[in-house]
Structures are given as structure tokens and as C-alpha cells.
């Protein structure tokens, strides 16, 4: 049985019909491809039938990211993106009708720089539901997780194929919203296949936690989602989506994103 988290994540996962394909969680880099396109891109993802959205707040030195997200982040930073602006763009999207859950993804330094409490309060006020920090393992996450909790935000930890079982249980116990499962050894970036180690990790997570599982890193096509049916409740699609925008410079990025997400969400996807 899948435990339902409270709030928008809980509701979104609860609406999925049993045995359906994983819901799509597209990644939008705040400020990419244009500084002020973020809110419109989030709404385009919602129209395309995503389960939730992830909003990237760019950092100058993103250790967990491959070339695509590095490049998108660098472009966003040079366009003047900051954590404060990114958060306010989510608020803008909420007031324009965004209803799907939103997870903010960033690195720990911008959060510390802003101040953990100020960051959490701003996220909460903007209608963000959870926070993902890929360079904050459980040993370092205590304070941020507690502060997020106080502000009604989900702390969404990452688990990896190298995470041993005992640690997996410990990390999953700190999670709310969902557990972010990293599919491969490596950084973000589109890949050809879903790796066997990803399926193994998803099974191991289910053995220690009832929370929904989202698989990320390398997910790029509709077949991957079909393959994941029954193994994961959601899939994060980041680099492949940004690649589609980077690869179509002449086209309207809103159309590109909406089309890409719709193709992935496909038949049987959740509509909100």
C-alpha cells in the first residue's frame, strides 16, 4: 500500500489509478530559456498532464548535474536568476492557476546563503510543496529537514543504487512527499535505457518505505515510463526536456515543453 502524504503531493499520488504508468514530473530550470518564462512553462507542464513539477533554482557549481543542466543553469544565472526570483515565479504560477504539486530543487549553498528559515518561509508562502537538495545527504540534512517540516514543506531526500539497505531505511524515514530514487551511478543526463540497478533500487525502497517513489536521472522517453509501470509511481524528466528546448532554438519553448511532456504522459496519464 502506498502511504499518502498530506498536501498536494499526497492528493496527486492518491489520484493515480493502481497499476498505471508512473506520473511525469518535468523539471523546469527557473530562468531558462528566458528569465521570466518560468511561470508560463510550469503552466504548460500542467496542461500537458504532469503529476507534479520540479523547479530548479540554479547554482554556479552543480555537482550532481551533467552538461545539460549545467548549461541551462549557467544561462539562467547569466540572465539574472536568483533564489528569491525563482521562488516568486512559483507564486506567480500559483496565482495564474498552477495546481499541481511543486518541488524546488537546488543546492545547499544558496539555501544557507539565504538562511534556512527565510528560504523555507519564502517557499511555503509561494506555494512550493517540497524541497530537494542533491548535495545534502542524511547526515547533514537534519536542520533543513526540521525547518522545512515546521513550514509545512516536504523534505524529499535522494537515494542511490549505492545506498545500502540499512541506510535506505534511515533515509526514507526522513522523507515526506516522495522518495527521490537516483537511477544510475552518475550525474543527471538523458540515457538510452532504464538500468537494472534502478529497478532493484525501487524494489528495495518499497521494502523499507510506503511513500511514493519517483525515479530520476536518465529518464528521457515514453518507453522508459512504460517499463517503470508497477515499479515507480513517478518519473522525473529533466535533461531530456531541457535538451528538447536547447535543440529547438527557433521554436516557442512553451510549445516544445508542453509537447514533450504530453508525449511522455501519454495515454492513461493523470489529468489535473
Amino acid at each position: 500500500m502506498i502511504r499518502t502524504a498530506s498536501g498536494r503531493f499526497g492528493a496527486a499520488f492518491a489520484r493515480r489509478s493502481p497499476g498505471s504508468r508512473p506520473g511525469v514530473i518535468p523539471y523546469v530550470m527557473a530562468g531558462f530559456p528566458e528569465r521570466d518564462a518560468t511561470a508560463r512553462l510550469l503552466l504548460a507542464c500542467q496542461r500537458a498532464g504532469c503529476l507534479a513539477v520540479e523547479v530548479g533554482i540554479p547554482f554556479s557549481d552543480p555537482l550532481a548535474d551533467g552538461p545539460t543542466i549545467q548549461r541551462a543553469g549557467a544561462l539562467a544565472l547569466s540572465a539574472g536568476m536568483t533564489p528569491e526570483i525563482a521562488i516568486s515565479q512559483v507564486a506567480q504560477a500559483r496565482s495564474a492557476g498552477l495546481e499541481v504539486p511543486v518541488a524546488a530543487m537546488t543546492y545547499i549553498n544558496p539555501v544557507l546563503s539565504m538562511g534556512t528559515r527565510r528560504f523555507a518561509a519564502a517557499c511555503s508562502a509561494a506555494g512550493i510543496d517540497g524541497v530537494i537538495v542533491p548535495d545534502l545527504p542524511a547526515e547533514e540534512a537534519g536542520e533543513l529537514a526540521a525547518t522545512l517540516g515546521e513550514h509545512g514543506l516536504a523534505h524529499i531526500p535522494l537515494v542511490a543504487p549505492t545506498t545500502p539497505r540499512a541506510r535506505l531505511a534511515r533515509v526514507a524515514a526522513t522523507a515526506s512527499g516522495f522518495v527521490y530514487c537516483v537511477s544510475v551511478l552518475g550525474t543527471t543526463g538523458a540515457r538510452q535505457r532504464v538500468s537494472p540497478q534502478a529497478l532493484d533500487l525501487l524494489a528495495r525502497v518499497r521494502s523499507v518505505s510506503a511513500l511514493p517513489r519517483a525515479l530520476g536521472f536518465g529518464i528521457s522517453r515514453a518507453e522508459h515510463l512504460t517499463e517503470l509501470t508497477g515499479h515507480a509511481e513517478a518519473a522525473v524528466v529533466a535533461s531530456a526536456l531541457l535538451d528538447s528546448v536547447l535543440g529547438a532554438p527557433g521554436r516557442d519553448p512553451l510549445e516544445v515543453v508542453e509537447g514533450f511532456v504530453r508525449a511522455l504522459a501519454g495515454e492513461g496519464a493523470e489529468r489535473s
Binding site: L63, A64, I108, D135, P137, A160, T162, T163, R167, V182
Partner: peptide, 18 residues
């Protein structure tokens, strides 16, 4: 563990923790 006063720690992707 791994702290010098306030400083140090291990802020790394989960994959590297083990």
C-alpha cells in the same frame, strides 16, 4: 563527525556517501 568546529562535513550526492 568530520567537523573542525563549525566547518567541514560531507555535502555530497548520496551516491558518494558509502
Amino acid at each position: 563527525r568530520g567537523r573542525f568546529g563549525l566547518y567541514g562535513g560531507a555535502y555530497v550526492p548520496e551516491t558518494l556517501v558509502p
